[in-house]
Simulated assay, not measured.
Amino acid sequence: MTSRIEHRAAFTIPAATVHARLVDRAFLEARLRAIGGKNATLVDHEIIGETVRYRLRQGIDSAKLPSAVRNVFNGDLVVERTETWHPDAPGFTGTTKATVAGVPAEINGTYTLTITPSGCELRTAAEVKVRIPLIGGKIESVIATHVRDLLAAEAAFAESQ
């Protein structure tokens, strides 16, 4: 079973500006400090031609998890997220893959940053899959909700910079 994540964020600034922010090392580090969660860090950041790839590590404090999840996993959840971005005229596209340490779970998704008359729009489409019999769907739902909230916070942070 998988849980789908769909998210849209509208920006009043050009797509090139949003993209430049989203892939900038200093911006990513600032975003992680502001909203990245427990022990958040930028693990890797590389630029190869016009492609930017980076890996983030973000923690979710166990106290913020629903009891159904805390009963299955002891301690905080640690999420490793790899994103790859490249130009895709007239906008930009990206992919994301995230894993949760110690949990048979993964998130795979795509980003599309397109130009709009008022600026640009970032669309995220992803799927969460947790391979645990009986309770996997519940955990997927919790992760999907957390990811949606995180995407909204990240978009607001990008708009404010």
Rank of each mutant, 00 (worst) to 15 (best):
R21Y: 15
Q161N: 07
V100S: 08
V100F: 13
V43T: 12
D24M: 15
F73H: 03
T145H: 15
R148K: 15
T96D: 05
T145R: 15
A68E: 13
T2G: 00
P87E: 06
T145P: 06
I13H: 04
E29S: 11
I135R: 08
A125D: 04
A34Q: 09
E140K: 04
T17L: 08
A40K: 09
A16S: 12
H7R: 03
L122E: 05
G94P: 02
H146N: 15
A89V: 05
L113K: 13
K64T: 10
R21Q: 13
D61T: 00
V43S: 12
A68K: 13
F157T: 07
D44I: 01
P117Y: 06
S67R: 13
R81M: 02
K38M: 12
A105L: 10
E50C: 05
G37T: 12
K97D: 10
T2S: 06
A125I: 04
F73L: 09
P87L: 05
M1L: 11
K38T: 14
P117E: 06
A156W: 03
T41G: 10
S118Q: 15
T114A: 11
L22D: 08
M1K: 14
E159W: 02
H7V: 01
A125N: 05
E6H: 03
T110D: 05
V147F: 08
T110Q: 07
D24N: 15
M1C: 11
G94D: 03
R31G: 07
